[in-house]
Structure formats: C-alpha cells, structure tokens
Amino acid sequence: MITHFQYKPLIKQASLPGWRISFYFRGIHYDGIYHKNGQIEWAAMTPPKEEETEIQSQIHELMLFHVYD
C-alpha cells in the first residue's frame, strides 16, 4: 500500500504537462515524474519489477482522484 503520497505540478500555475510525485511503499521512499499520459519516470529508486505494476495502478488511482476529479 502506498503511504504519504504527495504530488505537485512540474510548472507552477499549471496542471500539465506533469507532476512530481513522492510516496512510500513498504517502507521504501520512491519519487519520480508522473506524465500526463500516465507514464511514470522514476528518479533514483526504481521499484522491483514484480511490484511495479501494482504501484503504478495505485498511483493512477490516486492521480485520478486528486488531479482529474
């Protein structure tokens, strides 16, 4: 489960072209850029391949709720 999820626009006063995101998943901090097409560009720490799909799904849900609602 994702905890401490935060996001902010890459460009002030604009909701596009993307958002800087950060969160914890199983006690590990991750951050990256969420692009308007739903692609996630990971920063220094990339999630393990077996958990990446689950994490991306949760992030998409959070972004739909917070940004597009």
Rank of each mutant, 00 (worst) to 15 (best):
M1Q: 14
I2C: 05
I2E: 02
I2L: 08
T3F: 02
T3P: 01
T3S: 05
K8W: 06
K8F: 06
K8R: 14
P9A: 12
P9G: 09
P9Y: 06
P9M: 11
L10K: 03
I11A: 15
Q13Y: 11
Q13S: 12
Q13E: 10
A14G: 11
A14P: 07
S15Q: 13
S15H: 12
L16W: 03
L16F: 06
P17N: 04
P17M: 01
G18N: 08
W19F: 06
W19Y: 10
R20C: 09
I21F: 08
S22E: 14
S22F: 04
F23H: 03
F23C: 03
F23L: 04
Y24D: 14
Y24H: 15
F25W: 02
F25K: 01
F25D: 00
R26S: 10
R26V: 05
R26L: 11
I28C: 09
I28V: 12
I28P: 00
I28Y: 06
Y30W: 07
Y30Q: 02
Y30R: 00
D31P: 03
D31C: 11
G32H: 07
G32N: 05
G32L: 04
I33M: 00
Y34E: 03
H35S: 12
H35D: 13
K36S: 09
K36W: 01
N37V: 05
N37M: 10
N37P: 02
G38Q: 08
G38V: 06
G38R: 08
G38K: 08
G38W: 03
G38E: 06
G38F: 04
Q39Y: 13
Q39C: 13
I40Q: 00
I40M: 01
E41M: 12
E41A: 11
W42G: 01
A43H: 14
A43I: 08
A44W: 07
A44N: 09
M45P: 00
T46E: 11
P47L: 03
P47F: 02
P47Y: 01
P48V: 05
P48D: 13
K49D: 05
K49H: 06
K49S: 06
K49G: 03
E50K: 02
E51K: 00
E51N: 04
E51W: 02
E52T: 05
E52Y: 01
T53I: 08
T53A: 10
I55W: 00
I55P: 00
I55T: 07
Q56N: 09
Q56T: 03
Q56F: 02
Q56S: 07
Q58G: 03
Q58T: 06
I59G: 02
H60T: 10
H60E: 14
E61I: 10
L62T: 07
L64Y: 13
F65H: 14
F65D: 14
F65T: 10
V67M: 13
V67D: 12
Y68C: 13
Y68L: 15
D69P: 14
D69T: 13
